[in-house]
Each structure stands twice: as structure tokens, then as C-alpha cells.
Amino acid sequence: MSGRGVARAGRLGRAHVFRWVSFAIVGAYFLAPLLASARYSFLGSHGRLSASAYVRAFGTGELWSSLGRSTEIGVGTVAVTLTMLFGTSLWVNLRAQRWRPLVDAITLVPLVVPVVVVVLGILGTLSFLPGCILRTPVILVLEYVVLAMPYTYRIIDNGVRALDLRTLVDAARSLGASWRQVITGALLPNMRVSLMSAGFLCFAFVLGEYVMASLLSFNTFPVWLQLMGQNHSTEAVALSVIALVGASLVLVTVSFFILRKPKGAGTERMEHMERVELAGERLDAVA
């Protein structure tokens, strides 16, 4: 190996080491509390290793009912968010660009105003709705849509703006597509990543939101978990561990299967670059 090759390998090697070290540190930051919680859930306050906390936690019927309620609310929130915000973003970007600053400002309001104020404000505004909405988790869905809006709208809007919207819409329309076909055939397939990200963000938000649900006295999963934690701390911790692990698995699965790039997207170019790099290294080695 020539001197150049050795130096190059050294540089690459150092980069690798640095990468793994950072990964280890950040990983530890996230894993340490998880491991500590897991340890506690197995040992309990008695200090004896057992899985009884898990057994007891899963035994209670309330776990499943509260989880189910949270899931329902989550799904509802995702559905309303994606429909409403995607539609808004399309409208702003296609027809009403002058309104963009105003719409952006509105979507950021929940970020600035305290949560409790937002909740009560929404309740007050929607007080005209019949009891079949107000006294059911539907009100929570509406609240969550608003509370998550600063984040979800930003994600969706960025996704829309990354498209050459005007041209794609015009092209699809001139080929004979109705508006429904334009959206489903030309726009949505190119919005996969944004919509998925917004959706998952929304869902995670709902599953973790405590304040509003408890204020409005709904027994969602976080509310029930908090209640559990007051009396049965080990079980609560066990459930938290499970929730975290479960969420991570879901995310990994999603990113692996659903969010991977379509066939050929960029990979050919990447392979070509890799080949060039390798050839360069090999040349160095031979020289």
C-alpha cells in the first residue's frame, strides 16, 4: 500500500471510530433510563426478581380498555389531521398563496398559547355542539388535532411544497384526471413520507398526552397509567417499558418496510459512486 493509501485508510478509520463512539454515547443516553426502568420493573420494591408486575399489569381489564380508547382517539386524530391539513396545504399552495403567511401563523398559535388555554378555548368555541360529541372522546380528537397542528402542518406543508405542485396538477388535469384522481394518482403517492411522518407524530402525541385527557376526565392510556402508578408503581413502570419498546419496534418496522425508497431511486447513482470510490482506493492500494 502506498503512503497515500495508508493515510486515506487512516482517515476513513478515524471517521468510523468517531461515528461509533457518538452512536454509543447517544444510545446510552436513551437506553440507560429504559434499562433502569426495566430493572425496576423486574425487581420491584421487594428487590426480588420476578415478572409478577407484568402479569398483574396485563391482567387488569382496564389496561385494554384504556389502550383501546387511546388507539381510537389516535386513529381519529390522524384521520382528521391528514385530511384537513393536506387539503389546506393544497389549497394554500395552489389557489391562495397570498394567504400563506396567515395560515402559517394560525397553525403556530397552539405552540405559543398555553395548552390549558387552548383546551378551554376550544371547548368554549365548540360548546354549541350536541352532547353526543361533547361528552365523548370526539372532543378529544378535535382538541388533539389543534394541539398537534404546529408540527403536523409543517410536515405536510413541506411535503406539498417539495412537489412541483402546479405542474403536476396541470399535467394530471390535462390528461383527463378529475380532482379525486389528481390527488390519489399524482399527489398522494409522492407525499408518502410526509403523510406517514405526520401521522405517526400525531399518533405518538395522542398516546402520550395526559393533561387534556385528565382535565376532561377521559380514561385514556396515559391517564390510566398515571393512576396505576400512584398505587402500583412497579406495574406502571412495567407498562411504560412495554410502551417504549413497542413504539420503537413499530417505528423500526415502519421505516424498514413502508418508508424505504422505491426501486431504483438513487441507488443506481449511489452504487456508481461507491464503485468509483472503491476503484480509487484500489488504485491507491496498487500504486
Binding site: D164, T167, D170, S174, L175, A186, N190
Partner: peptide, 13 residues
């Protein structure tokens, strides 16, 4: 009517 645009009109997906 068939229309050909200036650029980037193909559906990327």
C-alpha cells in the same frame, strides 16, 4: 388536449 410542459411534469412515483 395533450400538453407538454416546460419541465418536471412527469409523475416522480
Amino acid at each position: 388536449m395533450g400538453m407538454v410542459f416546460q419541465a418536471y411534469s412527469l409523475f416522480p412515483n
